[in-house]
Amino acid sequence: MARRKDHTPEELTELVLGRVLEFLQNEPADQLSLRKLAKMVGYSPGTLINLFGSYSRLILAANARTLDIIARQLVDVMNHTESAEEKLHRFAQAYLSFAMQCPHQWRALFEHHMEEGEELPQWQWSRIERLFEMIEQCLYELNEGSLEADRHEASRVIWAAVHGICALSIDDKLFAQTSVGGDSMINSLLTHYLSSWKRD
């Protein structure tokens, strides 16, 4: 078993979170445990708890890395797309693509629950809000007269609908003809929803 001094805290953090994301490439999060992860990185379970505070916080930190990956993809779309409507379409397609390519990593974002009495830390809230702010900015560009509260709600409506399509696509539960897939359903959803949003 490796000793604590074999890695700095920063190096060990990177090692552990890297192993979690590697594991999620092939296995669901519920197949991972603190003991299994400790064995994978060559440290004791107690060392990992001392580093992250709890196993729940460790998984939350791994999920933060996933949100960072998604955010980078959306920023890339922002930087290479002119139209606000096209940005929203490409945002949604990037989200679907990530969910299909990394289903266990994507699901881990939503299957994780904080321990009783714990609140989601600010560093995670900030990541979540950043993603919604990108959507809200696009909605503002499409309808500058819209209210902030309406944009806040609309961003969640869009995400919830796209998220549902992603979840059903991963599980192959769309119950549609082969020509109807998650990508075409997302395009249909946004085309109709945004058409209404621009008229309001």
Rank of each mutant, 00 (worst) to 15 (best):
L34K: 09
L174M: 01
E85C: 08
S195A: 14
A154C: 08
A160P: 01
D150Q: 14
G145K: 06
I165C: 06
E11D: 07
E136D: 08
N143W: 10
W197L: 11
D30R: 10
Y95L: 11
P9D: 02
V180Y: 12
H163K: 10
L15Q: 15
H152G: 04
W125K: 15
S169Q: 14
Q124P: 00
R156P: 02
E144K: 11
W197G: 11
S54I: 04
V20A: 10
A61K: 09
L58N: 02
I170H: 02
L168Y: 10
A84P: 14
F98C: 11
Q137D: 11
I69L: 12
F98W: 08
L17K: 03
L60W: 02
Q122D: 12
P28S: 09
C102D: 09
Y95F: 14
Y95E: 09
N79D: 13
F110S: 03
R57N: 13
V75W: 01
G18H: 12
S195N: 11
A29Y: 04
E119M: 11
E153T: 12
P121I: 04
Q124L: 09
K198C: 06
G181F: 03
L21V: 07
I69Q: 13
F23E: 01
G53D: 00
I170T: 07
E136V: 08
D68G: 15
K198W: 06
V77G: 04
E144P: 00
L37V: 01
C166K: 01
K173C: 14
R72A: 13
M114L: 15
L17Q: 10
L37S: 09
